[in-house]
Amino acid sequence: MKHDFEVKIQARLDGELSEQEARRMDEWIARDAEAGALAAELGRLKGVLSRNETAAAVPESREFYWSKIQREIQRMDRSVVAARGGWSWRRWAKPLAGLAALGCVLAIVRWETSPPAFDEISATGEGMEAITFHDQSAGMTVVWLQDSTPQVKKASDAPAAPISIPDPGESEVE
């Protein structure tokens, strides 16, 4: 007999088949002697097993058995309490860390945006360079204006003289 049919006979006994399938299986079991014998064997065993489980008992006294459970429960409860204590500390640690981080950011921003004790700004235009020096402590601003036209350019008035024009980006503060 195919294994598929064997497990179907079993499924029929266990009430795992649909009504239609169960009817078909019943007809087949009634017709086929081998199927009938297998169904009888499985049915007998099912009946015997379901009513005869051995009743094992704990081989320890009530107090001894309970003491291990109680110890473990108390140990777990202590660790939960400890974890809760740690949690309350951590509950404050997070906002404090956030505040500290915010303080750092504000200090950096403030430091970067506040004017320094003195500052020097250089601006270069075509043919002119301006340098501004600001001394906050002295409350003084000095502006230099200077002609940045290269000397060679002035000499270019002379015809056929070679002209060398420096890169304006390379202007330097003097």
Binding site: E53, T54, A55, A56, A57, V58, R62, Y65, W66, I69
Partner: peptide, 10 residues
Amino acid sequence: VARHRDKIYA
């Protein structure tokens, strides 16, 4: 536990 320990152990 006392009531059901045998069944759970079994």
